[in-house]
């Protein structure tokens, strides 16, 4: 294992401290750095591109407007007019996840969405917002979410626990999906890229053989860009669907 060509596909997910405050206390990690970078890039881009507010947008402004309209349509489609109240929330989540995933595609950059604690925190935020707003808006009627209409009373003892578990499983499925996609994608990419190096060490025939994983790596890179955008979209769509449940809590 003392091979210099050894490939460690997990190494890219290691969290390292950049600045630590106090002994074993809070520290500013590479994960945190990229979160700050993502937020900074989003804020800078949106602010600068919409600064002129020209009626006929230039390309940069057009991209921001398209992002805005894309998310606005998504929210109003799944949560209706009342859901537009949550547009800033969904838009922030979408942009944050999207930029984080895209940052992850740049070599040597850290992908913080590949850590389940991050995605779980995001999903939990959605979950808490849904519960709090649902209870605030509908009061106890929010609990109707767990009682499907048209179900006879004697099956309720069975149906209600099932509905409750189904509801509680949402943040988990939401976070696991994003995390697993990104983690699996990055590991696959690294492993295939590692094959190129390992095979290349075998001389001429090795180089010929290395062509196959090289082609695969290029293809998977394209696929990963797709997954990065898609997972941000899925996260945002499901968020707006859950918000829809909070606004209209009956199935």
């Amino acid at each position: 294992m003392a091979d210099p060509n050894k490939v460690d596909p997990i190494h890219q997910f290691q969290i390292t401290d950049i600045v630590s405050f106090g002994e074993g206390g809070i520290s500013f990690t590479n994960s945190a750095l990229f979160m700050v970078l993502s937020v900074g890039v989003i804020a800078l881009y949106l602010l600068l591109s919409t600064q002129k507010r020209s009626l006929v947008p230039n390309r940069v402004q057009l991209v921001s407007e398209m992002l805005y309209e894309f998310v606005a349509k998504m929210v109003s489609d799944s949560a209706g007019k009342a859901g537009m109240k949550f547009f800033p929330f969904v838009f922030s989540l979408f942009m944050f996840v999207l930029v984080a995933n895209m940052f992850g595609m740049i070599p040597f950059f850290f992908t913080f969405t590949s850590h389940i604690i991050i995605t779980f925190a995001l999903a939990l935020l959605v979950f808490v917002v849904v519960i709090v707003y649902g209870l605030y808006k509908n009061g106890l009627k929010f609990l109707k979410l767990f009682v499907p209409s048209g179900v006879p009373g004697y099956v309720l003892p069975i149906v209600v626990p099932i509905e409750v578990v189904s509801f509680l499983s949402r943040p988990i499925s939401l976070s696991v999906r994003l995390f697993a996609n990104i983690l699996a994608g990055h590991i696959t990419l690294k492993v295939f890229a590692g094959f190129i190096v390992t095979l290349g060490g075998l001389g001429f025939l090795g180089w010929l053989g290395a062509l196959l994983p090289l082609v695969m790596t290029v293809a998977i890179t394209a696929l990963e860009f797709l997954v990065a955008a898609l997972q941000a979209y899925v996260f945002a769509v499901l968020t707006s669907m859950y918000i829809n449940d909070a606004i209209h809590p009956s199935h």
């Binding site: 189904s166 499983s169 949402r170 988990i172 499925s173 696991v176 999906r177």
Partner: peptide, 8 residues
């Protein structure tokens, strides 16, 4: 994920 999350 929907299926497994509910079981977990």
């Amino acid at each position: 994920t929907e299926f497994i999350a509910a079981i977990l």
